[in-house]
């Protein structure tokens, strides 16, 4: 892990991974959309609204995955002071926030016809809303200080503290009774989704993961550039 803390080595890895991430994203999203909209059957209870699952569930998974990535790299940045780790967290935040927003909106569009309401304050929905605010807090804190390293440290601490929310989201549907149904795919006795519906779900999830990687790589390059720009500006000012 520490080998990758070298920016040059990290960017070289990025260049290697980028075409693969792009290919996986485009391939999985194209086939995933085809299966979600055309090939997969309507659900026996929920009819065609089950198709919303194929954009809602991967977005929710990515919301939690991105937060975990952000919290872990924030912790690494706090402990070892690696610039790469700090920038991974910074580059992940807006992507994760977008996925969380998507999970909330598509969930609402699914809840209205099936549950009969756009929103309820149950444990699952509320904890995901808190996740969204944690992302926003991270982004705001990062820019809140004139001294960028202080902003980065404050945001990293928030990310690590907020990580308690991730298991709460995951297990909220088991620990408390909620309107939201329990997990279907990640459970001990195997998925409760028929294979004809699991295929588009997993394809879309692959596509979303590839998309995150791709966007992370683009944003990492941009973050490294702005870091260099800042360094040059400071040097110019001190001259």
């Amino acid at each position: 892990m520490h080998r990758l803390a070298n920016p040059t080595r990290f960017l070289r890895l990025c260049n290697m991974v980028k075409p693969w991430a792009m290919a996986i994203t485009l391939l999985c999203l194209a086939t995933g959309l085809y299966f979600s909209l055309f090939k997969s059957p309507p659900d026996y209870q929920q009819s065609d609204t089950v198709r919303i699952m194929y954009v809602h569930v991967p977005a929710a998974w990515m919301a939690m995955f991105c937060y975990s990535a952000m919290a872990l790299s924030s912790a690494a940045a706090l402990i070892w002071g690696h610039l790469v780790a700090q920038l991974i967290a910074k580059a992940t935040a807006p992507i994760g926030a977008s996925f969380t927003f998507l999970a909330l909106i598509t969930g609402s569009l699914w809840g209205k016809p099936m549950w009969g309401t756009w929103w309820v304050w149950d444990a699952r929905l509320t904890s995901v809303l808190i996740l969204f605010f944690l992302y926003l807090g991270f982004i705001v804190l990062h820019d809140a200080f004139d001294d960028t390293s202080r902003g980065a440290r404050a945001a990293s601490i928030l990310a690590v503290v907020g990580a308690v929310n991730v298991p709460i989201i995951k297990f909220s549907v088991d620990w408390w009774n909620t309107l939201h149904q329990p997990a279907s795919v990640v459970k001990l006795d195997g998925p409760a989704i028929h294979s004809s519906m699991l295929v588009p779900l997993l394809l879309m999830a692959c596509g979303y993961t590839g998309f995150y990687l791709w966007m992370l790589i683009v944003r990492m390059r941009a973050e490294f550039n702005s870091n260099k720009i800042r360094a040059i500006r400071i040097r110019q000012a001190n001259r």
């Binding site: 609204t49 977008s98 998507l102 016809p113 966007m215 941009a222």
Partner: peptide
């Protein structure tokens, strides 16, 4: 009325991230 907006907003947001990230770079 519920399914198409869900797919539509997903496409818009994902494309938005893509455009924003490329412009940033």
């Amino acid at each position: 009325n519920f399914i198409w907006p869900a797919f539509g907003i997903s496409a818009i947001i994902l494309l938005g991230i893509l455009v924003h990230s490329q412009r940033f770079l």
